[in-house]
């Protein structure tokens, strides 16, 4: 795996293997000494043009636990916020000798530019680009789902998500998490239904490998066949109201918010995911977020193991396995 730019870069075999490696990584994280020597002497740069403490610390922890040298460039207070171009920053990283660049950027496609423009030789890992993709989020979601549906840590090793039904509800239009999840879950054999008000579905969504619906209750009740095994609520930004995507927070949460009543429509084994940070009371209610079906805290922990696996496969590859 030279770069990880899109969830579509991964074949079923690669994705399952990455999840399996993540299980091994997670197992090491139960030990007293969490650090592995796998990436000793390698340099991982976290290049964050957009604020995201959660994702940045998750990648930092992942790289450090693999013994990589970690350098973090954050937009705030660094040259990148003073108008330095992506190209100049990339050339600095090249001079530093970065082996992998984890990039978060507000512009869709910025990681593609880094990977394909010839500015750097390092591998590029997309940590969220604009409204395009966030492949490691999809990987950690798939990891969390596989554990939930296959019976816990390690139990699902070697398996995909064939037959699983997942409802993803929220602001699909602006969501990089939704795009990566649709692609990866489809690759892994799951059936995805996207649910959103029509204003928050992109024109052209009909070509995606998933179902699309606008009625959340019907989707949860299994209108497309069986009831879902998992629901993923996407973050909705309140500013969207000002651009007339929906009339009010109250109407949004009434029609598309995930709450206890809606979760009760699901089969007993079904789980709830959210990529965070949550807007409690808007797309998710407090009782849902903190309830027994919620895997939201687990997602955060799984993020480190999954990112360790991604960095390991990018930098150490199979020869170091």
């Amino acid at each position: 795996m030279r770069h990880l730019l899109s969830a579509a870069d991964l074949s079923r075999e690669q994705a399952v293997h990455l999840l399996d490696v993540a299980e091994q990584m997670a197992a090491t994280q139960q030990r007293e000494i969490k650090k592995l020597p796998a990436l000793r002497g390698r340099t991982v740069v976290n290049l964050f043009f957009e604020d995201s403490t959660r994702t940045r610390t998750s990648f930092e922890a992942a790289a450090k636990r693999l013994s990589a040298d970690v350098i973090t460039f954050s937009a705030k207070g660094s040259s990148v916020s003073k108008g330095e171009s992506l190209k100049d920053t990339a050339m600095t990283l090249e001079a530093i000798g970065a082996d992998a660049v984890v990039v978060r950027h507000s512009a869709s496609g910025a990681p593609h530019r880094l990977a394909t423009s010839g500015w750097i030789r390092a591998g590029v890992l997309n940590a969220g680009d604009g409204t395009h993709e966030h492949p490691t989020q999809a990987l950690l979601d798939a990891f969390t789902l596989r554990r939930a549906l296959r019976g816990g840590a390690g139990a699902g090793t070697g398996t995909d998500l064939a037959g699983a039904r997942v409802v993803v509800v929220g602001d699909v239009l602006h969501s990089r998490v939704a795009r990566s999840n649709v692609l990866l879950l489809h690759t892994l054999g799951a059936r995805v239904t996207l649910v959103a008000p029509p204003t928050l579905l992109p024109v052209g969504v009909g070509a995606w490998p998933c179902e699309v619906a606008t009625d959340l209750d019907a989707a949860l009740a299994g209108s497309g066949g069986a009831r879902p095994d998992a629901v993923m609520a996407l973050r909705v930004q309140l500013e969207r109201m000002d651009a007339a995507y929906f009339p009010s927070a109250r109407e949004y949460s009434r029609r598309y918010g995930v709450d206890g009543r809606r979760l009760a429509l699901l089969p007993d084994h079904a789980v709830l995911l959210h990529p965070g940070p949550m807007n409690r009371g808007l797309e998710i209610s407090a009782d849902a977020a903190d309830g027994v079906r919620s895997r939201i805290v687990e997602q955060v922990a799984n993020g480190v193991a999954t990112r360790m696996a991604a960095l390991y496969l990018m930098l150490a590859g199979e020869d170091a396995a």
Binding site: S108, G109, E133, R179, V203, G204, A207, W208
Partner: peptide, 12 residues
Amino acid sequence: EGEVSAVLGLRG
């Protein structure tokens, strides 16, 4: 704005 913009996450 169409199928490609939907995939690329670029404003249509």
